[in-house]
Design a protein around this nucleic acid. Structure first.
Length: 542
RNA sequence: GCGCCCAUAGCUCAAUCGGAUAGAGCAACAGCCUUCUAAGCUGUAGGUUAGUGGUUCGAUCCCACUUGGGCGUACCA
């Protein structure tokens, strides 16, 4: 539909030059009486041309040449909106398209040939994934899914570091628990990892090695084993909600390959760093940021900024056209440093898209749970999946815009699991599957030869909604607005449920019944395609 | 103090570059199953879009200030 409009406007632009000067945005009005698509160009132009918008609108409409069997009428309304009404028989053509393209309906080749990387989760292996990580995990995977739909070849990557103070503390936590199991008197510091999983790992080591490890230090087998077990756990948790990484990038590799060293040299050579108080500072103020930051501490250890920059350079070197980073809001101060440094080094930092999602506030018994992996005060993602299932978890985190703070009331999530909107979508899909089973028994199949019989309001509304799907996917993917897939699907499901209530298939005249079956298949296909972007299953029965 | 994000119906959230009468779900109330799944449908009620000013044909959206909240602001990651 939109493409047709763009076509006729391209022709009109030959006559009216000013149409070339603005971007034409066709929107779906929020009120049906304003047509299927609406254009506000006349109002925008009125300022530029200093003319009455309604006069401009009339001039535009008069210059359009269109097929009356496609566009039924064009109105000028309000201050100068141009409203387009498509014919009902044209609307039905979307069914042919969907039934031909099937799972590819909604895909676009706009960005084919390009490679993207989505970096997400990136939690260090110090403990299980929590509900807090869940939002990052689900949104990251969904962004990756969306980019794939618009043509990108996407890699999912998890960046982590297994060095540093936190990991030393982790190793020592396991060591102390191990000694404790062997009957030693220990003092377990408050700022050590308090979680049960530490004891479990210690217990494994005791079972396998007896008391042979008493003289080992924290950094050796204790830390290594902890990392291995925790990672195995993290990967299992990810798999439960359908996430599979292409690569795990260990920060340590940056040191091994000498990238940290050479990056430091490059900063020095380009006069972007200086020494002060035994530390090395990056001249971020000269690059437009607020303050210079330390990249190598006086102890000789680099701060996280340096490997972060080096890591992003590897992404450029690996040839990605788009690099998406998904962070929680606690990182909102760090990425400008990385981007500024990359730019100063000559990389096109526009190719890096940083998405910051706000935190999830967990409410348990009406109170806010402050999550801390170290203090073992957390609710794991696994516990949540056990409680409500993977589909609900994926849908819940995909339902809202990432800039919104998200309240997660655990009691409510459990109690209302039956009323979660995800079931509304899945129910629509299952209902259609059921219809298809029943109609088959009645000897009815789908037919595309009498689609023009689909003239009722609920049928027409469904058709128009279906038409919008590819545009919607493209828009959402290019703007990283994952939650709008959920909104679209809820609207589609609502239109279907209404259609279901108003329009019967079995019992209708055969030609009409078969056209309606075709419509059902089209709706089912789009529901399934949309749900698969979200990573939510589309059941055939519920 | 400074920076980023947020404030919309009782609750959780939408609103496609600034568009027409701000929409859903949940909760509440009133209806709809001898016929394809009632996990559904229909209707009612619910709003000074935190507040004040500004920009213009038009502001939930942009700007300024105020109030309230989240996260940062480390030689932690």
């Amino acid at each position: 539909m939109k493409n047709y409009l763009l076509n006729i406007f391209m022709q009109a632009a030959n006559k009216l030059n000013y149409l070339n000067e603005i971007e034409l945005t066709f929107t779906v009005p929020n009120q049906k009486s304003y047509g299927d698509y609406s254009l506000n160009a006349a109002m925008i132009l009125s300022k530029k041309l200093n003319r009455n918008p309604r006069d401009i609108a009339k001039e535009i409409v008069d210059s359009l040449e269109y097929d009356k069997s496609i566009i039924e009428k064009i109105d000028i309304a309000g201050p100068g909106f141009i409203n387009f009404y498509f014919s009902s028989s044209y609307n039905t053509q979307v069914i042919n398209q969907i039934l031909t393209e099937k799972e590819n309906f909604g895909r676009s080749q706009k960005h084919s040939g390009k490679r993207a990387m989505v970096e997400f989760i990136s939690a260090n292996p110090t403990g299980p994934l929590t509900v807090g990580h869940g939002r990052n995990a689900v949104v990251g995977d969904t962004v990756a899914n969306m980019l794939e739909r618009i043509g990108y070849k996407v890699d999912r990557e998890y960046y982590f570091n297994n060095a540093g103070r936190q990991m030393r503390v982790l190793g020592d936590s396991v060591r102390l628990r191990y000694l404790e199991l062997l009957g030693y008197q220990i003092h377990f510091p408050e700022d050590y990892y308090q979680g049960e999983y530490i004891k479990e790992i210690a217990s494994m080591l005791k079972n396998e090695h007896g008391n042979k490890l008493v003289d080992e230090d924290a950094e050796g087998i204790f830390k290594q084993r902890a990392e291995k077990e925790i990672f195995a756990d993290i990967i299992k948790s990810m798999e439960r909600i359908g996430i599979r990484m292409n690569n795990f990038y260990n920060e340590h590799l940056l040191f091994e390959e000498g990238r940290i060293e050479s990056l430091l040299n490059e900063f020095e050579k380009k006069n972007l760093s200086y020494k002060k108080d035994d530390a090395v500072w990056l001249k971020l103020t000269e690059l437009g940021n607020d303050a210079d930051k330390v990249i190598v501490k006086s102890s000789g250890e680099p701060t996280y900024r340096l490997p972060d920059i080096a890591y992003h350079i590897t992404k450029f070197e690996r040839g990605y056209d788009l690099m998406v980073d998904l962070f929680g809001s606690d990182h909102n101060a760090t990425y400008p440093d990385v981007l500024a440094a990359l730019k100063a080094l000559g990389y096109d930092s526009e190719k890096v898209k940083v998405l910051i999602h706000q935190f999830v506030t967990i409410l348990q018994k009406g109170e806010v749970v402050k999550m801390s992996t170290r203090k073992a005060n957390y609710i794991t993602l696994d516990e949540l999946v056990d409680e409500v299932g993977a589909d609900v978890v994926r849908y819940f985190f995909n339902m809202r815009g990432i800039t919104s703070h998200l309240n997660f009331d655990l009691e409510l999530a459990k109690k209302q699991s039956d009323e979660n909107p995800v079931f509304y979508l899945q129910y629509a899909h299952a209902r259609i599957a059921s219809i298809l089973r029943m109609t088959k028994e009645e000897g009815l199949g789908s037919s595309l030869s009498n689609l023009e019989l689909l003239t009722t309001e609920s049928e027409q509304n469904l058709l128009k909604k279906l038409y919008g799907f590819p545009d919607e996917v493209l828009y959402i993917a290019e703007n990283y607005e994952t939650h709008r897939i959920a909104i679209y699907l809820e609207e589609l499901a609502a239109l279907f449920h209404r259609f279901y209530t108003e329009c019967r298939i079995i019992g209708s005249e055969k030609k009409l019944a078969e056209a309606r079956i075709a419509l059902c298949i089209a709706v089912q296909t789009v529901l399934k395609n949309g749900l698969s972007i979200l990573g939510v299953s589309a059941p055939d029965s519920m």
